[in-house]
């Protein structure tokens, strides 16, 4: 699969949460689909993720969340906007209650993938919505 060719994505945990399995699997799924994946791992602050996003000039950011740290995800979106990277979509996955998912989407998070999402759903979404997706598919 080469759907992700030319698309650079960060996959990261946020805050102190150490449940890394979901993020690691998504990183693997995207890599297998041809994306360039930068996996940051655990104990990443919003500031650290911003720094990596600027340095690596990524096209999308995936945040894995285990029932917590929602405010830090919203803060990351703010930081990206303040640093001229508001066009990089932040996509979340993990144990996130439905009403929180709605709130996150209202606050600038591009999409929220619940547990049980398929690899096709994730790959298609990132391919279609990464920064410059229209240009790349043209």
């Amino acid at each position: 699969m080469h759907k992700g060719k030319g698309i650079k994505v960060i996959i990261s945990m946020i805050g102190l949460d150490g449940h890394t399995t979901g993020g690691e699997i998504v990183a693997r799924v995207l890599r297998d689909a041809g994306f360039e994946v930068i996996y940051l791992g655990a104990t990443q602050t919003p500031e650290m993720i911003l720094k990596a996003a600027i340095q690596e000039d990524v096209d999308a950011i995936g945040i894995s969340s285990h029932a917590s740290n929602f405010h830090q995800i919203e803060y990351l979106v703010e930081l990206l906007k303040d640093n001229g990277m508001g066009d990089v979509p932040v996509i979340c996955g993990g144990n996130i209650p439905k009403h929180v998912a709605s709130r996150l989407k209202g606050n600038g998070i591009a999409e929220v993938f619940p547990p049980g999402s398929s690899s096709a759903q994730i790959i298609d979404y990132v391919t279609a919505n990464a920064r410059g997706a229209a240009r790349k598919s043209a």
Binding site: G15, L16, T45, H66, A67, S68
Partner: peptide, 10 residues
């Protein structure tokens, strides 16, 4: 500074 963000969470 990091504890402040998530003490008592999880």
């Amino acid at each position: 500074p990091l504890g402040r963000r998530e003490a008592g969470i999880l």
